Simulated scan of single mutants.
Amino acid sequence: MQIPSLAEIKRELSYLNEKELREFIIDLSKFSRDNKAYLFFKLYGREQQGLYVQMVQEELELEFQNARDDHSYYAKKSAQKIRRKMNKLLRLSKEKTDQIEVILFFCEKMKEKGFLKHGNLVLDNLYNTQVAKVKKLISGLHEDLQFDYEGRIEAID
């Protein structure tokens, strides 16, 4: 089965009325939890700016509480699992400031929970990659916003 291009899908959607579009969106949200989460953040994120960051931080906080950091192997596996979840959640927002907040939260929690105390190369690389990613995102922001994040970057660096 040949899947049509996004342009073709957009064209076909433009021919539908509001009721049919609503039904398609509801059906699409039933297919996966990711679709439902994306739809939720798109609908409610406009009214409450910090909602996305707050909910993602709560979810990551739960993951950090359940994570094992007593041994290098378990700390590595837990950190990788949390990073995968974070990256999955980062796809739900296109806002750079939201992404920066989430990645900074992840790095701060890794330091706070003692994941870096093991001296594990994989953990160190994972952490440094996230720090580099957040620095790159911050460099693309306005100068005033860059200044706001400098203190937090210095704290995790």
Rank of each mutant, 00 (worst) to 15 (best):
M1N: 11
I3T: 13
S5P: 03
R11C: 00
E12M: 04
L13H: 04
L13M: 13
D27N: 11
L28T: 13
R33E: 14
R33T: 14
K36H: 01
Y44I: 04
G45Y: 08
G45W: 05
G45R: 04
R46G: 10
Q48P: 00
G50Y: 08
G50M: 12
Y52P: 01
Q54T: 09
Q54S: 14
V56A: 11
Q57P: 07
Q57A: 07
E58K: 15
E59M: 10
E61H: 14
L62W: 03
E63G: 05
E63A: 13
E63D: 14
F64E: 04
Q65Y: 06
Q65C: 03
S78C: 00
K81F: 14
K81A: 11
R84V: 05
K85C: 02
K85A: 02
N87W: 11
N87Y: 15
K96Q: 02
K96Y: 01
K96N: 09
T97S: 15
Q99H: 05
L104F: 09
F106C: 04
F106V: 03
F106Q: 01
E108K: 11
K111Q: 15
G114T: 04
F115K: 11
L116H: 03
K117V: 15
H118A: 04
H118N: 03
L121I: 15
L123M: 09
L123F: 08
L126R: 04
L126V: 03
Y127H: 11
Y127W: 10
N128I: 00
N128F: 05
N128L: 07
T129K: 11
V131K: 11
V131P: 04
V131L: 11
A132F: 10
A132R: 13
K135C: 09
K136Q: 08
L137C: 07
G140S: 14
E143C: 00
L145F: 12
L145H: 10
D148P: 00
Y149G: 03
G151F: 07
G151M: 02
I153P: 02
A155H: 06
A155M: 09
